[in-house]
């Protein structure tokens, strides 16, 4: 008697627990065929899409998309596994992901880092040239490594003129406090922590000094790009609205509120991060998505990253950069 009562209560409870899982499974099956699935993660240039999501602009544009929120590296894993149609990543990471087999086409640029990545030096050191013969700690093979090489070159130095110490980006603030380390390379908010750890230390070279060293892009699966071209073009059209909404001083507070909400921080905290990111409208993107060899061209930037990745041993054989690049979506009317 009591037994049957508890068992029916148990069943009801089980059913309730089961429901969302079953629903998730069903919705997955349904989606596999239908909407474009885009993975995005916590970077201002990508969280920007949240504005379009919240405002229902994709529906208005007549395209069915589903954004999936990931940890950055998990988003690339999901893309590599073919579970999503497109993912937001850096042009360099598009090559790295592709070197493992998951090729992609960069449909458009979302932004570039405009000061968020930086080389921070101890008090007294004011330029990269002064780093000659000194120790610099950073995570080798990542953006900061590339940033340093780029800066050294401009200062007339070679990589061998400084002593590189390989540390995890997260550990650079403590590393900077060590007596024999003169500078570190890190991105925000880690670089900010480093400056707090060694009062008086200053950024001596940042991504703002070399806009376009690294571009952030929306990269899609080549098969999907081919089969669903029109839909992707519609997705890109929405981006312009997003950039306009974020850049317009009248609507910016609302945009920042939406983005900060997605990232789980307060708008006031979020604003500086946004400022360190240069969002690119389609028009601005178009200007970057042209053949060239400098950092003002996505071609030039991607080629440089490709060489850097091979040199740093990230992958062995250079990727065919042209296969990743297709400006026709950005240029579409």
């Amino acid at each position: 008697m009591t037994k049957s009562k508890t068992s029916s209560a148990m069943k009801r409870w089980l059913a309730r627990a089961l429901l969302p899982i079953a629903a998730a499974a069903c919705s997955f099956a349904a989606q596999a065929a239908q909407p474009l699935k885009i993975g995005y993660s916590d970077w201002p240039g990508w969280v920007a899409w949240q504005v379009a999501i919240e405002k229902d602009w994709f529906k208005a544009a007549g395209v069915d998309v589903k954004f999936e929120w990931f940890d950055y590296s998990a988003s690339m894993d999901a893309f590599a596994a073919g579970k999503i149609d497109a993912v937001t990543m850096t042009n360099g990471d598009a090559l790295v992901t592709g070197s493992g087999g998951a090729k992609s086409v960069m449909l458009m640029l979302t932004d570039y880092s405009n000061g968020n990545d930086m080389i921070v030096a101890k008090p007294g050191i004011k330029s990269l040239a002064e780093l000659k013969g000194k120790k610099v700690a950073l995570e080798q093979g990542l953006v900061e490594h590339l940033l340093l090489l780029n800066g050294l070159k401009k200062a007339g130095l070679k990589e061998s003129d400084v002593k590189l110490v390989n540390v995890k980006t997260n550990e650079t603030p403590q590393t900077l406090t060590a007596a024999d380390i003169s500078a570190i390379g890190a991105w925000q908010p880690v670089s900010g922590e480093a400056m707090k750890a060694v009062p008086g230390s200053k950024p001596i070279y940042t991504s703002a000094d070399e806009p376009g060293l690294i571009y952030d892009v929306l990269a899609a699966n080549p098969a999907s790009v081919k089969a669903r071209r029109d839909e992707w073009i519609k997705v890109l059209k929405v981006w312009d609205k997003v950039v306009a909404y974020i850049n317009d001083p009248k609507t910016q507070p609302d945009a920042v509120k939406i983005m900060a909400g997605k990232s789980g921080v307060s708008p006031a905290e979020y604003l500086p991060l946004l400022k360190g990111t240069k969002l690119l409208s389609l028009e601005e993107g178009k200007k970057v998505y042209v053949k060239g060899s400098g950092f003002d061209s996505l071609y030039g930037s991607t080629k440089t990253v490709n060489e850097f990745n091979v040199a740093a041993g990230v992958y062995k054989k250079a990727e065919n950069v042209d296969a990743y690049l297709d400006p026709s979506f950005t240029n579409a009317k």
Partner: peptide, 19 residues
């Protein structure tokens, strides 16, 4: 941490990232 971000872990890692 794998797949889409969800659950209490998302909350914890995100809050830790912003200190």
């Amino acid at each position: 941490l794998i797949g889409t971000s969800s659950g209490i872990t998302w909350y914890i890692t995100q809050q830790a990232r912003y200190q």
